Computed example of a mutant assay.
Amino acid sequence: MAGGVSRGLDPRPRSLAFRFVLAMAGVLGIGADIRHWTLEQRTEAAGWTARYKEIWDVIMHGTVQLIGEPGRPRCAVQYTAADADTVVVLVWHTGRLDGTGLLPSRPVRLPLAGVDPAGVHRHGEQRYSGSHLTAVGLPVQWTAEADAEVVVLRRA
């Protein structure tokens, strides 16, 4: 156990965010005894659960696409809503958290599928052309503290 969160078969320490984002690629089953979690962990878990409820419909009913593969620094699952207006990308850094992919100048790029090349999608304040998302890819930055992310792109 590391910080009250079981590592399971993966000997590398993983954040609670990593476990939740991974579990979001399905029915959000965590498989841990939360009675032993700290208040901070339970609060973080509540936030991840609320986030999952916001994107559940796209995950359950959208078109799914695997990007990369487990065991590689680029591993994600893309869900695209039927109207293609919303794209949810669940992404994990499955490699080492102390080297490759962590330098600010070297983001991991996730080429997306099924995005209208002529369209524009936004994530927060950031805007991406569809052609950029499919050809160059969605940039994701990793740090030792951030090993997973949920990106929700909405057509602008």
Rank of each mutant, 00 (worst) to 15 (best):
T43W: 04
T43A: 08
E44V: 03
E44M: 06
A45V: 06
W48A: 08
T49G: 08
T49Q: 15
A50L: 12
R51G: 08
R51Y: 09
E54I: 01
I55W: 11
W56F: 11
D57A: 15
V58R: 11
V58Y: 09
I59H: 11
H61T: 09
T63L: 11
V64M: 13
Q65C: 07
L66R: 14
I67N: 01
E69W: 01
G71Y: 03
R74H: 03
A76L: 01
A76K: 00
V77T: 14
Q78H: 09
Y79V: 13
Y79S: 07
T80Y: 00
V87K: 02
V88R: 06
V89M: 12
V91T: 13
V91R: 03
V91Y: 02
H93G: 05
H93Q: 09
T94Y: 01
T94F: 05
R96E: 04
R96N: 00
L97Q: 02
T100L: 00
L103W: 01
L103I: 00
S105K: 06
V108H: 01
R109K: 04
L110N: 03
P111L: 02
P111W: 00
A113K: 07
A113D: 00
G114C: 07
V115K: 01
D116W: 06
D116R: 08
P117H: 08
G119D: 00
V120L: 05
V120Y: 13
E125H: 13
R127I: 08
R127V: 09
G130D: 12
G130A: 11
S131D: 13
